[in-house]
């Protein structure tokens, strides 16, 4: 990465977004400001409809915002065209989705290398081996997704997200479809990549257990950040969530 060092991996200022027009307009983000320092694992929590997925999509350049500013690794995302956005996602952002993360026609190894392949770049062999080793899939690289378990598939997706050394990895409910053991493996891996490799990770979840792996949690409700919590544990997060529901 040749990007100049910047204090924050992700910097969002007063991001607003609404769907529809006039009376039927629904505000998804009502002025969200957020800073994710490099190497932090941040969890975005909130009940359904709180806007947490929209926030992630906007931060990642998958969706456009109405007003506000979003920088990823110091690059302004708002206002970029499709071509630049695509290149940004390819080179500077990693993704782990809840499901359907892999192309069925490619092997696990090919799936991991896909973003580099798309960019026409040669992989950094040492880094690739390190990532593959860390997800524990070295012996599964020639398998197709259909031959892997759900947990293995998500770990392949994590490896793919990391292989480009992106400014930030976005994970949208990465454990939503997994049993608790597989989920724990995936989350531990993401946590380790943040702690040991300095990889910034933003994870969107409604699962307090998942949020417990993060360095920091922000709580979203009705399109606004209503609270945050440093050094969270799943118990504390659960506690906080209960209070939300009570007040709602």
């Amino acid at each position: 990465m040749t990007t100049p060092p910047h204090p924050a991996a992700v910097l969002a200022v007063d991001v607003r977004k609404s769907y529809g027009k006039g009376e039927t307009a629904v505000t998804a983000l009502a002025g969200v400001s957020l800073e994710v320092p490099r190497g932090q694992m941040l969890a975005v929590m909130g009940p359904s409809g709180s806007g947490k997925s929209t926030l992630m999509h906007c931060l990642a350049g998958l969706d456009t915002v109405d007003t506000g500013s979003i920088e990823i690794g110091g690059t302004q995302v708002v206002g970029l065209g499709d071509k630049q956005l695509t290149a940004l996602r390819r080179d500077r952002v990693g993704f782990v989705f809840q499901q359907f993360n892999l192309l069925p026609t490619l092997t696990a190894g090919e799936n991991i290398l896909l973003p580099l392949d798309i960019a026409g770049k040669k992989p950094d062999k040492a880094w690739y081996d390190e990532v593959v080793g860390a997800v524990g899939l070295a012996d599964r690289l020639s398998h197709r997704p259909a031959e892997l378990s759900g947990g293995q598939q998500q770990r392949v997706a994590c490896a793919r997200a990391l292989v480009t050394k992106p400014d930030v990895v976005f994970a949208d409910e990465p454990t939503g479809n997994l049993d608790s053991r597989s989920g724990a493996e995936v989350l531990s891996f993401l946590q380790a990549s943040a702690r040991d490799k300095g990889q910034t990770v933003v994870i969107v979840t409604h699962d307090p257990v998942a949020a417990g792996y993060a360095d920091k949690v922000v709580f979203l409700a009705d399109g606004l950040i209503v609270d945050h919590m440093d050094a969270p544990t799943s118990e504390k997060v659960l506690e906080r969530m209960k209070r939300f529901e009570a007040s709602a």
């Binding site: 998958l62 695509t86 996602r89 989705f97 359907f100 993360n101 892999l102 192309l103 069925p104 798309i118």
Partner: peptide, 16 residues
């Protein structure tokens, strides 16, 4: 459709 979306998400240009 979902595959195409995934490809676009991880950075495949429209042209590609």
């Amino acid at each position: 459709t979902r595959e195409l979306g995934l490809l676009r998400a991880v950075g495949l240009q429209r042209r590609q």
